[in-house]
Design a protein around this nucleic acid. Structure first.
Length: 953
RNA sequence: GGGCGGGUAGCUCAGCGGUAGAGCACUGGCCUUACAAGCCGGCCGUCGCAGGUUCAAGCCCUGUCCCGCCCACCA
């Protein structure tokens, strides 16, 4: 019986099966179907007793367009989410978008600039409205792109960090933090980006290492005679100097202790101080100019010595009136002008090349200036300690575990967070400033502040909060916090938080702190971190490098020319193309462009990289390989359908297999299920995906289908009554493993598996979509595991391969009638081979059944011999080629086999002969080595026979 | 200056204590009635270097050399 939600909405225009798999016709058929049938919907009903699985999706920037990083997390999270959903979890994958303060504001400002407008000219409210309009026009485009990839979040619950309910949560959090004394206002040295005209948190400053600069030395005249030479990388800041510091024990400067120097350009004198913390006597001249208002070290020094802090910069990075005659100059100009002036005054002393680290704004790339400013800060220590404890106690587990150290280090040394930004796009700070510097913080404009108007003495704080402030609330603000909603009760804390390691500090750590602070609970049980997608040579993707790949171009296909025109608009096309080819050697070999790989192939490829790899070097060739895999699945299912025939109906009860090949494939399917579950559990989705790949291709397709084909194709007349049970069981097993494989692989490749599954006979108990599962479980499949059957099958495969190798190496025509003889001293082996003689015949393509006999039989002219060194005793594989044998080739082949056996033998001998091995190594290991050695020795003896045989040719 | 990764087949990467693996590339043969996006074969490795632990080491330890990333206020 189907639940009411499962309204059938079957897509139309099913593509014919008997043509190559075409993702373009299959993939568009299913998304609406899933959505309409409620596949993605999570239930917050208290009556729903299913276990809950929750993953908050990292909300992409509204400005964003899908890039590889998005595609990677979409593929990984969707796999996790679908896996759980199929296992019966009430699954919430919480989607949304982020307002991305600076990023979005810059984008819209750039648009305005093109129209000759500026935000200042427009005014705040008009500008904000403009951003909203833009968001309405283009926002959530990325969600459409994620749909293309088959993502299955509960879209009905999508949130935008600037929507009213989110804003309410932000205000609530801010007010509570203020009331708790954790949110405070302070005047400090902060990071200022003159280009964005806003403060930045420490995390938003990127230190660019290895910049070439100079260490400039100049002299300050000392009052009472003499001079003291200081070294600096920033000569222009001397306009804000309020001290010169030397090391107290530096003999060169003892005479200057307590003296004052005169500033050459501004009318003031300041002291020479001694400070052992700031000054390293070995660096530069051993004398340091101190600029408390523009350098973090100097600021601290100034505090220690009670120095004056002179701010010399305007907010736009030009010099202010404190700079005297240099006022108005831009930072760069000022540096030149100050140096020139110092030269003119005869005070310049030296200039040396110097490699330094430049602090840059992560958004604009502009050089960040330390400035003294009054801002809102959030006290971090206590929250950080709780967040550290939560991970140490294991309430939240970080995977891969190596990242725990990084997390610890960050939170252990965290500084207070400057949360106010001088932007217009964002959550405005819920604080009101009064005429006499009073500050009121409240959820709404306080009554005592009077009505809101331009000339009111009480004005709301114009600043907005760091974007990451609202992101930090995401796991619970999306569920309705601060209200105790049903969703919050049901879906908080989340199960897994899956994201790139690059936002471990920005986002994960802050969610941990806020989650614990506001709810008392960890926000998620596990943190799963994946690496960065880079190009095929390991370089980070960037427009400048011209190595950006758009996931959708891989899905839909594109010419490289069109692709680079879009992804590298800054370079000339030919150059961009060359860069692209260099970044993706394997793509270069594909011709003029990408074919439509389809979402499944792209997703599958992404999840087959170990997520723990710091760099995930995406190879187009690998996507191509996976598209081939999809084609394999397509064709194999078609074959299965043909073999099952239209009359097949699923039995009421699944049965265990009794016949050898069926037992084997069930055993292998169970092993694959086990690996897939383990892979998922341990966040080794690559292993999960690859296990399903190898099962399907290397076991199901390469062996099982080939074996089963002739059995199921025999007409009733051809198949003896004794085999009726075999045929019936085989048909069922085929249906079972193919249907099971599609369920197994669905989390990785939802489209093709749904398409094929819908065409396949299946048990009545199945629901309308494959996406509802059930997923093959360890418990159900596990009992099918059988090591003994697996071992026998290995022998079977080795025998077939050995015979095939002989055929192949002698260039035997496939239609040539060759006779196969298999010899073994072991009765069980002969029995086994005899039981499967028909299959061996089919797979090796001999015309008659293999002859089975004991060793030492008559040697026929024109016969070659290979040896399978099975542990139960070697099996001789003789192929009578009837004069087709090339003597030298045969000898070479045998020689190769002998060499292989010798290699193994010598390494075994070494092992066995090693002093202490037999005494110290575990008994099983010794036993195994001994058995193997015996097998190899026997095999070698047989090979000697084979050689003699060949020599007689 | 600290921390974290990584150096394994031509390329991209698995493997992390018991006889070196995958995909792609290369190569020989096959249009074999599921699939040429395929099939059947083959070739390819002193597992960065040097020591050590162990009966046994890509796998553990120490040192060392490269490469990448992160954090940090050396003027």
């Amino acid at each position: 019986m189907l639940p009411m939600t499962e309204l059938a909405a079957f897509p139309t225009a099913a593509p014919a099966l008997d043509q190559p798999y075409d993702p373009a016709t299959v993939e568009p058929r299913w998304y609406d179907f899933w959505e309409q049938n409620g596949v993605f919907a999570a239930s917050d009903s208290p009556d729903d007793t299913r276990p809950v699985y929750v993953v908050p999706m990292p909300p992409p920037n509204v400005t964003g367009s899908l890039h590889m990083g998005h595609a990677l997390f979409t593929a990984l999270q969707d796999s996790l989410v679908r896996w759980h959903r199929m296992r019966g979890y009430n699954t919430l994958w919480q989607p949304g978008t982020d307002h991305a303060g600076i990023a979005t504001q810059l984008v819209v400002e750039r648009q305005l600039a093109q129209q000759g407008l500026s935000r200042r000219a427009m005014g705040r409210s008009a500008f904000v409205e403009r951003v909203w309009q833009w968001r309405r026009e283009t926002g959530d485009r990325i969600h459409l792109q994620q749909r293309t990839l088959g993502a299955s979040p509960d879209w009905s619950r999508s949130r935008f960090t600037m929507d009213a309910p989110m804003n309410r949560a932000v205000v609530e959090a801010f007010v509570r933090l203020f009331e708790q004394g954790l949110m405070y206002r302070a005047t400090r040295l902060i990071n200022w980006c003159p280009e964005c005209a806003t403060t930045l948190s420490d995390l938003e400053v990127e230190n660019e290492e290895g910049a070439n600069g100079e260490l400039f030395e100049f002299a300050y005249p000392v009052e009472g005679g003499g001079e003291i030479v200081v070294a600096t990388t920033r000569p222009e800041t001397m306009l804000g100097d309020t001290a010169v510091a030397v090391h107290p024990e530096d003999p060169r400067y003892v005479a200057f202790h307590g003296k004052r120097v005169r500033h050459p350009f501004v009318d003031r004198t300041f002291p020479i101080i001694t400070d052992a913390i700031l000054v390293d006597p070995k660096f530069g001249t051993g004398a340091v100019k101190v600029t408390p208002a523009h350098d973090f070290n100097d600021f601290a020094t100034g505090k220690r010595h009670g120095l004056e802090e002179i701010n010399i910069l305007n907010l736009d990075g030009t010099l202010n009136s404190n700079a005297g005659r240099f006022a108005g100059l831009d930072r760069k100009e000022a540096r030149r002008a100050v140096k020139t002036a110092l030269v003119e005054r005869g005070l310049a002393r030296a200039s040396k090349p110097h490699v330094l680290t430049l602090p840059r704004c992560s958004r604009s790339g502009g050089i960040v200036e330390p400035m003294i400013s009054t801002q809102w800060f959030l006290s971090m220590r206590s929250m950080a300690d709780k967040a550290l404890e939560a991970v140490h106690s294991g309430r939240t587990v970080i995977l891969p575990t190596e990242w725990t150290k990084t997390y610890d280090h960050f939170l252990g040394s965290i500084q207070d967070w400057c949360v106010s930004r001088q932007l217009w796009w964002g959550h405005q700070i819920p604080a009101w400033h009064g005429p006499n510097g009073e500050i009121k913080v409240a959820r709404e404009r306080p009554q005592e502040c009077g009505a809101e108007s331009a000339d009111s003495p009480w004005q709301q704080d114009p600043d907005v909060l760091d974007t990451w402030f609202s992101s930090a609330l995401w796991p619970f603000s999306t569920l309705g916090w601060p209200d105790r909603t049903r969703a919050l009760t049901k879906f908080y804390p989340a199960s897994d938080l899956e994201t790139g390691y690059d936002i471990l500090f920005f986002w994960v750590a802050r969610m941990m702190m806020f989650g614990l602070h506001f709810t008392g609970l960890v926000p998620f049980r596990r943190v799963l971190l994946h690496g960065m997608v880079v190009d095929e040579t390991g370089e980070k993707m960037s427009k400048v490098k011209g190595n950006v790949m758009d996931p959708l171009d891989l899905v839909y296909g594109t010419s490289f020319a069109a692709m680079v025109e879009k992804t590298a608009p800054l370079s000339p096309p030919a150059e961009a193309l060359a860069k692209f080819r260099k970044a993706y050697p394997s793509a270069a070999a594909m011709g003029a462009g990408f074919p439509a790989f389809g979402a499944d192939a792209v997703r599958f490829t992404l999840v087959t990289y170990p997520p723990s790899n710091k760099r995930i070097a995406l190879s187009p060739k690998r996507i191509e390989g996976n598209r081939h895999f999809l084609n394999k699945i397509w064709n194999a299912t078609r074959l299965a359908l043909e073999l099952l025939g239209s009359g097949f109906t699923w039995p009421e009860q699944a049965e265990t297999a009794r016949h050898f090949y069926n037992r084997w494939i069930r055993s292998r399917f169970a092993a694959a299920c086990e690996s897939v579950h383990t892979g998922f559990d341990e966040f080794r989705i690559d292993e999960a995906a690859l296990a399903s790949y190898h099962f399907f291709w290397d076991e199901l397709c390469s062996w099982y289908l080939e074996i089963v084909k002739p059995i199921l194709r025999r007409t009733p007349l051809e198949s003896p009554p004794s085999s009726h049970d075999l045929v019936r069981e085989t048909r069922f097993t085929l249906a079972y493993v193919v249907e099971g494989s599609l369920r197994l692989m669905h989390p990785f490749m939802p489209f093709i598996t749904e398409e094929l599954w819908q065409r396949l006979p299946r048990p009545r108990s199945r629901r309308i979509s494959l996406a509802f599962g059930p997923y093959p479980t360890r418990d159900d499949e596990g009992p099918a595991r059988c090591a003994d059957v697996d071992d026998w099958m290995d022998i079977f495969k080795d025998v077939v391969s050995a015979a095939r190798a002989i055929r192949s190496e002698h260039g035997v025509d496939k239609k040539a009638d060759v006779r196969l003889t298999l010899r073994s001293a072991r009765p069980e082996t002969l029995d086994f081979l005899s039981a499967h003689a028909e299959s061996i015949r089919t797979l090796v393509k001999t015309q008659g059944l293999p002859i089975l006999e004991g060793p030492g039989g008559r040697r026929e002219a024109g016969t070659t011999m290979g040896v399978v060194p099975a542990s139960g005793g070697p099996i001789e594989v003789l192929v009578a080629l009837r004069g087709l044998v090339d003597r030298d080739g045969e000898l070479a082949r045998i020689e190769r086999e002998v060499k292989k056996v010798d290699r193994e033998l010598s390494s075994l001998d070494k092992k066995l002969a090693a002093p202490g091995f037999t005494e110290r190594a575990p008994k099983e290991v010794v036993e195994e080595a001994t058995t193997q050695r015996r097998a190899l020795v026997e095999a070698k003896a047989r090979l000697d026979t084979a050689r003699k045989l060949a020599e007689e040719l």
